[in-house]
Simulated scan of single mutants.
Amino acid sequence: MTTSNTPGTGDVDPAVREELARLRDSIDNIDAAVVHMLAERFKATQQVGHLKARHQLPAADPAREARQIARLRTLAENAKLDPAFAEKFLNFIIGEVIRHHERIAEDAGRNAVR
Rank of each mutant, 00 (worst) to 15 (best):
T45V: 00
A84E: 14
R110A: 13
V34T: 12
D28G: 07
V48C: 11
Q68I: 00
L75R: 03
F89L: 14
E19A: 05
R24G: 05
F92G: 08
I98V: 15
M1W: 09
R24H: 14
I93P: 04
G10A: 09
L51N: 11
D31S: 13
V113C: 13
G8K: 05
L90M: 03
I27M: 13
S26H: 11
R54E: 13
D13Y: 02
K88I: 13
G109N: 01
R17S: 06
T9V: 12
A53E: 10
F89N: 14
H36D: 15
Q68W: 05
E40F: 08
T74P: 03
I27F: 07
E77D: 13
E18D: 06
K52E: 15
E102K: 07
R67Q: 15
F92K: 10
N111P: 04
V34H: 14
I93W: 07
A79W: 04
K43G: 11
D61N: 10
A76N: 04
D25K: 08
A79I: 01
A70G: 05
A66C: 06
I104D: 09
E102N: 07
A21N: 01
S26G: 10
T6V: 06
V12F: 03
G95T: 01
F85D: 04
H55I: 06
D13T: 01
S26Q: 13
D31K: 12
G95N: 02
I30S: 09
P58I: 03
E77C: 01
E106L: 00
A63V: 12
R99D: 11
R67L: 10
F92R: 07
I94R: 07
V113S: 13
L20S: 05
A108Y: 09
E102L: 03
A21M: 02
A15Q: 00
A66M: 08
L20V: 00
E40K: 13
A59D: 00
D11C: 08
N5V: 09
S4H: 13
A108E: 11
G8A: 02
P14C: 06
A108L: 08
A105T: 04
M1G: 15
R114N: 15
L38W: 09
T45R: 03
E19Q: 06
